[in-house]
Amino acid sequence: MADPEKLFADPEKLFKVDVVTPNGMIYSHRGSIVDVRAIDGERSILYNHVPLLTPLVISEVKVKRSREMNSRIDHIAISGGYIEFSDNVATIIADSAERARNIDVSRAQAAKERAEKRLKEAREKHDERTEKRAAVALRRALNRISVYNTRGH
Rank of each mutant, 00 (worst) to 15 (best):
K6W: 07
T21R: 06
I78G: 03
I73H: 06
A135S: 11
R129E: 12
K62F: 04
S71N: 09
L138A: 01
E84S: 13
I58V: 15
F15S: 14
Y148C: 08
D10S: 15
A108S: 13
M1F: 14
S59A: 11
D18T: 15
A100Y: 06
I73V: 15
S86L: 13
A77P: 08
A122G: 00
A90K: 02
A115E: 01
R123P: 00
I26R: 13
V20T: 14
R99G: 03
F85V: 15
R114S: 09
L138K: 08
G31A: 10
A137Q: 04
H49D: 13
R133A: 09
I103P: 07
D40V: 09
H153N: 12
R123W: 00
V136M: 03
E60V: 07
M25Y: 11
D104L: 01
V20K: 14
V147I: 07
R107G: 11
K13V: 03
N88G: 06
R144S: 00
L53Q: 13
N102L: 08
V36N: 05
Q109L: 05
S66Q: 03
F8I: 15
V136P: 03
I78T: 10
E5S: 06
R118V: 10
E5L: 12
V20E: 10
E98W: 00
T21D: 09
I33C: 04
V36C: 08
G152C: 02
R72L: 14
T54P: 15
L142D: 06
P11R: 13
R151C: 04
K13S: 03
G81C: 05
G41V: 14
F85S: 10
E116F: 00
N88A: 04
T54N: 05
F85M: 14
L56P: 14
G80P: 09
S146F: 01
A115K: 00
I39F: 00
N143F: 01
T21H: 04
L142T: 06
P11E: 02
I33K: 11
E68G: 13
D3P: 12
K132V: 08
